[in-house]
């Protein structure tokens, strides 16, 4: 069989993905920033990036990128720096953020047609989901590098999707003489 079919469902052990729950999750993330230090926030985010990198390393592209990094000076220097400054020890104790889910949820909120209705009646505290305790795992330099690569690609694609996938490589001319305001400014004097 050369085809597989899936249904994307809500996690039966978690909260349903609705505009309301995603807004609540976003608000809770913002609110949590007031209760944690900047170091913890950065560490949790980087730990999440590293956890993503571990998963992506299992893919064909991810494994090749990881292997290539180990062969390059940058990869070796990064690992040396990581160990000398004990960044791996620091990140391994951090609760990893679900960076990919958060990014996809934020995109879904931007594309939601009922966002105005939800914002008129902000979700109550009972709508704010709480995280389950993620198991601690060692986070290495290569995990973070591969995770940054994957997360960066996803981020740029998400922004393009939110913008309606514009053709950025094509030239565009706006003739302000026709339908724009009067053009004035120091560059035109």
């Amino acid at each position: 069989m050369t085809a597989a079919e899936f249904t994307a469902n809500d996690d039966p052990n978690g909260h349903a993905r609705t505009t309301r729950s995603l807004v609540a999750s976003f608000a809770a993330r913002l609110g949590a920033l007031g209760y944690v230090s900047g170091g913890d926030a950065i560490g949790s985010h980087l730990a999440g990036i590293g956890a993503l990198g571990k998963r992506v390393s299992a893919t064909d592209e991810g494994s090749r990128l990881r292997t290539a990094l180990t062969r390059e000076l940058a990869g070796n220097n990064g690992q040396a720096l990581w160990q000398a400054l004990k960044v791996d020890t620091w990140l391994s104790g951090m609760p990893p953020s679900a960076v990919l889910d958060e990014l996809r949820n934020d995109l879904a909120v931007l594309l939601a047609e009922d966002l105005d209705e939800v914002l008129e009646t902000p979700p109550g505290s009972n709508a704010v989901p709480t995280a389950t305790l993620a198991p601690a795992e060692p986070i290495g330099f290569l995990d973070v590098m591969v995770g940054l690569w994957a997360w960066g690609r996803e981020l740029s694609t998400a922004v393009e999707v939110a913008a309606g996938r514009p053709s950025l490589s094509l030239g565009v001319v706006h003739d302000l003489r026709v339908d724009g305001p009067p053009v004035d400014g120091p560059l035109l004097r």
């Binding site: 085809a3 249904t7 978690g14 993905r17 609760p95 889910d101 709480t130």
Partner: peptide, 14 residues
Amino acid sequence: GPAAPGTVLVPRRG
């Protein structure tokens, strides 16, 4: 801390 509601992919065929 806050959780991010996720997606579960359930196979239907294949």
